[in-house]
């Protein structure tokens, strides 16, 4: 009975993972196929689509831009969201908390294409460029609600008496946060950062009007490419990202003990 339950659970997870990863695995498989059309039956094995990426430096630099933008946006979003979630959980009444949480989640409610264009229009009306930091800040605002949600959930089960205890033992605000609060909330903080990073890294609509030749992100470059070409090089780019992300995840865990979830 127990064994059957475990087997059923394993099968469920296997099917779920196949569903989530299936389309991507299929696309990645085509990146080793020399055929130029998509989707094509296998005609052999090749790495030429990977070599093709090296002849398109804009893909590599865009991937770098995206990683930097996503990391900065996620960091900014998590810090800001943590402060807000903390304030709301500690002091707010539950109705005030609900109202504020909804307000802070409002970026999710507006189509990003429109916000992207509106930011550009406003910035140029005021004679300021949006630039790199405008892009980062816009991404941060959009991903912040996700971090806020996770942190509010984490704080909902957080016992603030622990902080009182720490302070009554002579700990200051900062040291209480550093020694007590943050370690206890680590799972939500780490998951929030992961969430935000991913959402920023793959975001297209928000970046549509906010990028310039120097700040083109990977989705922008891929979207422009895919309008006039469809070949397995795009698949090769995806598989390189997956490889890089997988390596980074394992190395971070191994050497820095930083995990996607904790």
């Amino acid at each position: 009975m127990r064994f059957l339950g475990k087997a059923a659970g394993g099968l469920y997870l296997l099917l779920l993972y196949l569903f989530v990863a299936g389309p991507l695995l299929f696309v990645i498989a085509t990146s080793f196929n020399p055929a130029t059309s998509f989707p094509a039956p296998f005609e052999g094995l090749t790495l030429s689509w990977y070599a093709a990426i090296l002849r398109r430096p804009e893909f590599l630099s865009a991937a770098g831009t995206s990683a930097v933008v996503a990391a900065l946006a996620a960091a900014l979003a998590v810090v800001v969201a943590f402060l807000a979630a903390y304030a709301l959980s500690r002091n707010g009444s539950s109705s005030a908390r609900g109202a504020m949480a909804t307000l802070l989640a409002s970026p999710l409610l507006v189509p990003q294409v429109v916000i992207s264009l509106a930011i550009l229009q406003l910035a140029s009306a005021w004679g300021v460029g949006t630039g790199f930091w405008g892009l980062v800040a816009a991404h941060a605002v959009y991903v912040m609600p996700f971090a806020l949600r996770l942190l509010l959930t984490g704080l909902a089960r957080f016992d603030f008496a622990v902080e009182e205890a720490s302070r009554s033992l002579g700990g200051g605000w900062l040291s209480t946060w550093r020694e007590v609060t943050l370690p206890l909330l680590r799972p939500s903080i780490v998951a929030g950062f992961t969430f935000c990073f991913i959402l920023s890294f793959v975001n297209l609509p928000l970046s549509l009007f906010l990028t310039s030749p120097d700040t083109a992100t990977l989705p922008i470059v891929m979207f422009a490419y895919i309008e006039s070409r469809i070949d397995p090089m795009i698949a090769a780019v995806a598989s390189v990202i997956v490889l890089a992300a997988g390596t980074a995840t394992i190395l971070l865990d191994r050497f820095l003990h930083v995990r996607l979830v904790d």
């Binding site: 389309p23 991507l24 991913i198 990977l218 469809i230 995806a238 997988g246 996607l260």
Partner: peptide, 26 residues
């Protein structure tokens, strides 16, 4: 758990554009 969650997130990281190509075929 870390590896299991990574397995779930990499299809998103690869970008919806690539994944959608897979769906167009499948």
């Amino acid at each position: 758990g870390n590896l299991a969650i990574m397995g779930l997130t990499f299809p998103i990281l690869a970008g919806p554009l690539t994944v959608v190509l897979g769906w167009m075929a499948l």
